[in-house]
């Protein structure tokens, strides 16, 4: 796949900038009929300003749940969060997990500082409210504007995301639009309050291949234009390879490897990452048959294996170690961290 990156000044995406969001030892548990399930098991990562963090992992590994935790839109009835999510606003820092979900402060951040794009643009819009109604609402939740001014701003934002005939779109319902336009409307709604961080949870999964590329290009352009950080969640390593500056690879609620994209793609250290890369057609020129490169299936979150979560499928597992001890983080290159006994100095 072609790199979608738009050329930028080098200092604009420095690896050493202060992170916008610092996630530390985040745990997410669900109370279910089967008991308490650990969906995310103590992950740590940073989202850096003006950079794209690609979060990759198989379905069910806890990507969405992590994103929801940052937005504090977790299911409050069943979901318990632990660890810390620190957001930097200028000189201030703020632990989001210490805030009440429905508090004024949290609601200001949500949609104001952090925008969110969902996987399914069809169901993510109310079917009985017009697109305009819903975007105007987003504007007025964060800015003290009258209806006409808010509508003007909404129209400008729709134009900004390349929507043809935005005035007309304002009066339409989501189900009247094509998939690509719908996702554009979704993006416009997420950006209309000028967030510093945009979280996109599988933004292209529901789209066809051509539209996927268009939306990814659009996201990259918008990120540039608006100086945002982007957290791009996907199960498709190809998408990350094309768009991300930093990568976090997730497996069963853990981040097993993370670091700058270049470093990860050049010198991947974790057996899981290596297998993923091998199965990536465009990078290895293997054919589709390679998709089954990783044998076995992901265990259910309800019965997580002890030790390294990947040991049930890992070709290099060291018996007696990997199934007993959870590997800690090891720095293998600058900002490149891997959790695997193979690289553990002890």
């Amino acid at each position: 796949m072609r790199r979608i990156r738009v050329a930028r000044a080098a200092e604009k995406h420095g690896v050493n900038a202060d992170p916008i969001v610092q996630v530390r030892d985040l745990t997410v548990d669900f109370d279910t009929v089967e008991g308490r399930i650990r969906a995310v098991d103590g992950i740590s990562f940073d989202v850096l300003p003006r950079r794209t963090l690609g979060v990759v992992g198989e379905s069910g590994c806890g990507k969405s749940v992590t994103a929801q935790a940052i937005m504090r839109i977790e299911d409050e009835r069943t979901c318990r969060l632990g660890g810390s999510i620190v957001l930097r606003r200028g000189e201030d820092t703020l632990d989001l997990l210490g805030l009440d979900r429905d508090s004024t402060q949290m609601r200001e951040l949500r949609g104001g500082d952090i925008g969110f794009i969902f996987q399914e643009p069809m169901t993510s819009f109310s079917p009985v409210h017009t697109i305009g109604n819903q975007i105007i609402e987003a504007v007025r939740l964060h800015f003290n504007l009258g209806k006409p001014e808010a509508a003007q701003r909404a129209i400008e934002q729709l134009r900004d995301v390349g929507m043809p005939n935005p005035e007309h779109i304002m009066n339409q319902y989501a189900w009247e639009l094509s998939g690509g336009l719908r996702q554009r409307a979704m993006i416009a709604m997420a950006l209309v309050c000028g967030p510093r961080l945009l979280i996109a949870d599988e933004p292209t999964t529901a789209l066809d291949v051509t539209t996927q590329a268009q939306v990814l290009t659009l996201l990259a352009e918008l990120q540039d234009r608006h100086d945002m950080a982007l957290m791009l969640i996907t199960h498709d390593l190809g998408v990350v390879a094309a768009a991300a500056d930093d990568v976090a690879i997730m497996y069963l609620g853990c981040i097993v490897e993370r670091g700058p994209a270049a470093s990860i793609f050049r010198d991947s250290m974790h057996p899981y990452t290596q297998l993923l890369l091998e199965s990536l057609p465009s990078l290895t020129r293997r054919r589709r048959g390679a998709l089954k490169a990783i044998g076995g299936t992901v265990p259910r979150a309800a019965n997580r294996p002890g030790g390294c979560p990947f040991h049930t499928r890992c070709p290099s597992a060291i018996s007696g170690v990997c199934d007993r001890v959870l590997p800690g983080p090891t720095q293998v290159a600058e900002h490149h961290v891997v959790n695997c006994h193979l690289h553990d100095p002890q």
Binding site: M71, I73, D102, R107, E108, L109, R110, G111, G112, F116, F118, E120, T123, S124, F125, S126, P127, Q134, E137, A138, L141, H142, M186, M189, A190
Partner: peptide, 14 residues
Amino acid sequence: RPYVVTARAKGMRE
């Protein structure tokens, strides 16, 4: 439904 989560993500009061 997802559209409710969307609205929540906009910062609406519950």
